[in-house]
Amino acid sequence: MFKYLNHLVISKFVMAATGAFIVLFITGHAIGNLQIFLGKDALNTYAAFLQSLGEILWAERIVLGLAFVLHIITSIYLKLYNNKVRPTKYAVTKYIKARFSSRTMIWTGIMIGSFLVFHILHFTSRDIDPKYKEMHEVYQDEHASYFGFDETVMQATNANDFGIGMHPIIKQRHDTYAMVVDGFQNIWISLFYILAVILLGFHLSHAIQSMFQTLGINGPRFTPLMIKISNAYGIFIALAFAIVPLSVLLGFIGRGL
């Protein structure tokens, strides 16, 4: 399976293709997160919707996981291979065009990878703070029909007060909103997240235009524009992710929760 590593250009394609998939995911994730500003109900509905996807969610996780594994293995292999090419360094090193973001891809990548492990244990599997597993919200599903009840919840609430024939469905779901607010109220965790997404934005500012170059899309008008888009995209992603912990820290979100 890893025979492709012997071919430098194929390895580049693997980096670009897996990167493209990760970029699509990151874009969706960043925009999805912003629903926290629409309030508790919007975020928890979105989270419950994602969870309800079931097999589709797992298929997406497997493909994404594979993309990450290939992206990481290929980059580390290439870096070690490329490092062997110049054992004697230049006495004077100067860069004219190689940007700092391009020369630090492997390091920002490794740091983002380590953050990702923490992030998954923190908010996805919720093993870092197991109390997040038990955070539930009882809500009434206004979009559902008037038929059917969740008996366990019914008994725990005064749902009978709604009157016969007018029963909205009372359900229970994970309280993602409370989990996010609780997580980001810890200043160190918030700062760690903000730092990580800044690195991610930095990584992406080189990655997007590099991906097009690798896939063979380059032109005298397209490439300068794509370099600008790439930079703007990196800044957008960093801001879109960082604004959530920042808002919690500053008290715009989750006050009095």
Binding site: N82, R99, S102
Partner: peptide
């Protein structure tokens, strides 16, 4: 080594060969 799209080659090239040819080679 392999190309990482640093574009340092283009900057150093005495004949100003553009990296767009690398995209074409890809």
């Amino acid at each position: 080594g392999g190309c990482s799209n640093y574009y340092e080659c283009e900057a150093a090239c005495p004949k100003n060969i553009s990296v767009r040819f690398i995209a074409k080679l890809n």
